[in-house]
Simulated assay, not measured.
Amino acid sequence: MHQRRSVVVVVVLLTVVAAAVLVYSGVRQTRIVVGAEPTGEVVAKGLFGANHRYPFDAFGSFTPGGEPQQRLVANARSTGVSMLRYPGGTVANTFRWTRAIGPREDRGCQPGGGDGAPLDSTIGPDEHMALVEQMGAETTSGLSASGAT
């Protein structure tokens, strides 16, 4: 146990020394400039996005009938949101896509991302894509073939 602790201490010290050498040698100089003047550089379209969480009618993103809220669509378009990740946030960790497809009334519950409490699946991939299309955005997904993220 004592030998293992000594090895860990040596590794930590070497890491700290190596980082200090890089910083003080000028090898890595980071410069952040914040200003109101345009730079002329363009941000890639897919970088301005949001997580699209599905529970509770996607937290008000949809009508009770499953249609995208038009005020949300208009606001997203006007602010330039160009990417939505579905399912987004911690709920993506336990999402099972097979429970979120088919008729809304037949969909199963999802285990919550934080505490595992059951969450509804009324907003699934079909509803998500309707929102994405109306926004004129793109999507990315944490879904895998097994249904887990």
Score class of each variant (00 low, 15 high):
residue 34 V to G: 05
residue 105 E to M: 11
residue 65 G to K: 13
residue 142 G to F: 02
residue 92 A to G: 07
residue 31 R to A: 11
residue 91 V to Q: 03
residue 41 E to C: 07
residue 106 D to G: 09
residue 11 V to E: 08
residue 14 L to W: 04
residue 49 G to K: 00
residue 94 T to H: 04
residue 35 G to N: 09
residue 136 G to W: 05
residue 23 V to R: 08
residue 117 A to L: 12
residue 144 S to C: 08
residue 47 L to A: 13
residue 93 N to L: 14
residue 69 Q to E: 12
residue 112 G to N: 06
residue 93 N to D: 14
residue 140 T to H: 05
residue 88 G to Y: 00
residue 67 E to P: 04
residue 90 T to R: 05
residue 107 R to A: 06
residue 95 F to M: 06
residue 54 Y to P: 00
residue 40 G to K: 08
residue 36 A to L: 13
residue 118 P to I: 05
residue 48 F to N: 09
residue 90 T to V: 15
residue 36 A to C: 07
residue 102 G to R: 06
residue 104 R to E: 05
residue 106 D to E: 15
residue 22 L to S: 10
residue 94 T to Y: 02
residue 28 R to M: 14
residue 63 T to I: 07
residue 98 T to A: 07
residue 23 V to D: 03
residue 92 A to L: 05
residue 105 E to T: 10
residue 138 E to D: 11
residue 107 R to C: 07
residue 59 F to Q: 14
residue 20 A to L: 15
residue 86 Y to W: 11
residue 80 G to M: 06
residue 99 R to K: 12
residue 92 A to M: 15
residue 73 V to K: 04
residue 75 N to Y: 10
residue 24 Y to E: 13
residue 47 L to W: 14
residue 142 G to T: 15
residue 11 V to N: 06
residue 143 L to S: 07
residue 83 M to G: 02
residue 19 A to F: 07
residue 123 I to P: 01
residue 118 P to K: 02
residue 101 I to S: 04
residue 24 Y to N: 13
residue 79 T to P: 01
residue 13 L to G: 10
residue 29 Q to Y: 04
residue 36 A to Q: 14
residue 76 A to Q: 06
